[in-house]
């Protein structure tokens, strides 16, 4: 799979390619896709949470607060810390509006 893996975003109906060893978030960012908010890119802030519906992936270290093991089991992961091993089908949950004033 030198061409990388196909990631289908069921929320937007769009899809993109993720190279081997590349995080899903990085693949999104490189293509200018704004499926999820981009936070720290280090598994720490929890901004880029996605739901993986189908497919296998490797996980880097993520904050337990934002990606507890039981959530990771169900495919609720941070896009910055998952590296596809197969094609993926994902969902990007709608983001709450940010209120700067509060």
């Amino acid at each position: 799979m030198g061409m990388g893996f196909h990631v289908f975003n069921r929320t937007t109906g769009g899809h993109f390619t993720c190279h081997e060893g590349q995080s899903v978030l990085k693949a999104m960012e490189q293509r200018g896709l704004k499926c999820v908010p981009v936070g720290c890119r280090g598994g720490g802030c929890g901004f880029c949470k996605i739901q993986v519906l189908e497919g296998h992936f490797e996980c880097g270290k993520m904050s337990k607060r934002h990606a507890p093991p039981e959530a990771v089991e169900k495919g609720e992961v941070l896009a910055c810390r998952i590296y596809p091993l197969t094609d993926l089908i994902i969902e990007c949950p709608p983001q709450p509006a940010v209120d700067f004033a509060s």
Binding site: G39, C40, R41, G42, G43, G44, C45, K61, S63
Partner: peptide, 8 residues
């Protein structure tokens, strides 16, 4: 910028 764990 961020450290590898997401601390700014």
């Amino acid at each position: 910028f961020f450290d590898p764990s997401g601390n700014r």
